[in-house]
Design a binder for these strands. Structure first.
Length: 275
DNA sequence: CCCCTATCCTGAGGGC
DNA sequence: TGCCCTCAGGATAGGG
């Protein structure tokens, strides 16, 4: 479910309520959801939350004494911060903080993870070390796609190329750029690569501005819904009319993932982006 | 090297 | 109503 904009939405919510709180303890309701490396989760008792950061689709919580808690929501994970002590559906890990605040990691499909480690270990433990650059920092551009081979969508989903893009925003970025998701990256012109990068940035920023895409049931840190699902051009709209040209949107598999695109609008670069 | 599939899991929704 | 099948936004290992 969650891609960069959804994780960023959660991060902002958690930053507001978590920084400065003291960690009191954790309850593990499903053992595989919590992975500790060289640390026991009880070691964090008494530590203070210093910062809530995001790297790609990972959420990184920094604690005093050099501890780090990293979360990846994968397909169905959610992080809910609330004072209510009741057990939520599919709750897997609960972290208790001062002031009665509980951080509840819920994950129906159990693919998500919460890692506890030292600040020195967390990148290696979680795989964050191999992520590509952040798309929204403004320090990289279309050059990240240069020399990459294979379907455009496959490259967009490759977290080592660029961190944070998933299925929804990959399809939207291709539409914005006027590029077919099954086009070969190595055959795109420099201009098309720039359009594609710009498309990624536009799609992600719009997602953040609208507090995420609540397609199945994405929720922010307080159970609120995003509204980006109302602003998607292609994702989830296979067989429906293209909002730009009125034609019928195609649906198929690219890079093993359900993909939607417009044969007319994504045949070639259409000129300057107007989104 | 490239692409596809299976796998980790569970529930929703469609077809019959 | 109920059963069975397919599908789902992530990531990675392994096979052809």
């Amino acid at each position: 479910m969650p891609e960069l904009p959804e994780v960023e939405t959660i991060r902002r919510g958690l930053e507001d309520v978590l920084v400065g709180r003291e960690f009191l303890g954790a309850e593990v309701l499903w053992g595989k959801s919590l992975v500790c490396e060289g640390v026991d989760v009880d070691d964090l008792r008494g530590c203070e939350v210093l910062a809530v950061e995001r790297r790609g689709k990972f959420l990184v919580m920094r604690f005093s004494s050099g501890f780090v808690v990293t979360v990846h929501l994968r397909m169905s994970g959610r992080l809910i911060a609330e004072e209510d002590g009741g057990e939520l559906p599919f709750e897997r890990v609960r972290m208790r903080f001062s002031g009665g605040l509980n951080l509840k990691f819920c994950d129906m499909r159990k693919f998500g993870r919460v890692w506890v480690s030292s600040a020195e270990e967390y990148e290696k433990l979680t795989g964050i070390w191999k992520l590509g650059p952040e798309p929204l920092l403004g320090d990289v551009g279309a050059e990240v796609f240069e020399g990459k081979r294979g379907a455009v969508k496959k490259v967009l989903l490759d977290q080592t190329v660029l961190a944070g893009v998933g299925n929804i925003y990959a399809d939207e970025a291709c539409f914005y750029a006027g590029v077919r998701p099954d086009a070969r990256m190595e055959k795109l012109s420099r201009g098309q690569l720039e359009k594609l990068f710009e498309g990624v940035v536009v799609a992600l920023k719009q997602g953040i501005r609208n507090r995420g895409t609540s397609i199945s049931d994405f929720e922010d840190a307080f159970g609120g819904k995003g509204k980006n699902q109302e602003l998607l051009y292609v994702y989830g709209r296979g067989g429906k009319e293209c909002l730009k040209c009125g034609g019928v949107l195609e649906r198929g598999k690219v890079a093993g993932r359900t993909t939607v695109w417009c044969e007319v609008c994504q045949g070639e670069v259409q000129g300057k982006l107007e989104f």
